[in-house]
Write a protein that binds this DNA or RNA. Sequence first.
DNA 1: CAGCGTGTTGAGGA
DNA 2: TTCCTCAACACGCT
Length: 275
Amino acid sequence: MPELPEVYTVCKILNEQVKGKTIESFQIFYGKLLKRPSIEEFKMSVKNQKIKQVFNIAKYIIIELETDVIISHLRMEGRWLVEDPDTFTWTERHLEAQFLLDNGKMMRYYDTRKFGTLELLPIDQYYLIPPISNLGLDPTKDEINITDLYTKIHKLRSPIKTVLLAQNILSGIGNIYANEILFAAKISPFKIANELTRKKIETILSASQEILTQAKKSGGTTIHSFEATKGVKGNYQDFLKVHGKVGKQCVNCNQEIKKYFIGGRGTYFCLNCQK
DNA sequence: CAGCGTGTTGAGGA
DNA sequence: TTCCTCAACACGCT
C-alpha cells in the first residue's frame, strides 16, 4: 500500500497537475475524512488560496497553500486524481471530497477503505504539531547520524520489524519495505531491537536508504491496487525478494520463504538467511 | 461466508 | 514518565 516511495510518486504527479492553480471551492461527501478544522472553517480557509506546491513528508502529502497547508494521508487505498468535473476516473461511490480549481479541473480524493485523513494547519507551525512533529528522519532525504539512531533503537525492547514500522524512529517505512529491508540486511524480523549491534543498525540504515531510493525511482510498488494516478503503476514489485513470497524459494539459498505474524502484521522472511 | 490485510491512533497495562 | 500491545477503523477480496 502507499508507503514513502508510493506517496512520493503521488506527490510528484499531483504537483505537476495542480501547482500554481487556485482553489475556487471545496466539497466533502464523507465527513470523517476531515480531522480539523470544521467543514465550514475548512471551506472558508481554502477558498481562493493558490496551491504553491505538493510534496511528501514521509507518508504524508503536504499541499502547500499561501497561508495554510492541507495534510493528506492515504492510509491504505486513498487516491488523488485531477479530472474534468463530469468525468469520474475512479468509482463515484468512493469519492470523498473534491476541490474545484481555477482551470476548471476537479482535484478529487477517492478512498475505498475510508481510512484516509485530511486536515488543515497553518503554514508557519504545521511541522511543530502532530502528526508531522512526531515523525522520525526520512532515510531518503535526511542525513542520519548513526550514533543517534543506535541510541534510539538500543533502548527498545520490541522486535526490529515492529521498530521499523514505528514512524517516530525512521519515517516512511511500511510493511512491504520493512520485510525487504530486513531481508537485504540479513536480520531476522524477530530480533529484539536492543540486541542489535551498532554495526547491524548501520546495515539496516543503508538497506533502508537503498531500497526506498530504488523504489522511489521505480514509481513505487503496485500490489493489490496502488496507482499513483489513473493507469500509472509502480515497478518495484518486480524487485521484491520476500514480501508476499510465502512458499517460494529464497533468491539467495533456495530455502522456502516463511510467513509469520509480528505485531499483527504479515512478516515474510528467510529463516536461513536472516539471523 | 468469515476473516484477512492495511497504517495510525489511542486506550489501557506494565 | 515512557514503553509496549492491541483493538478499532472500513470494506473489497479470497
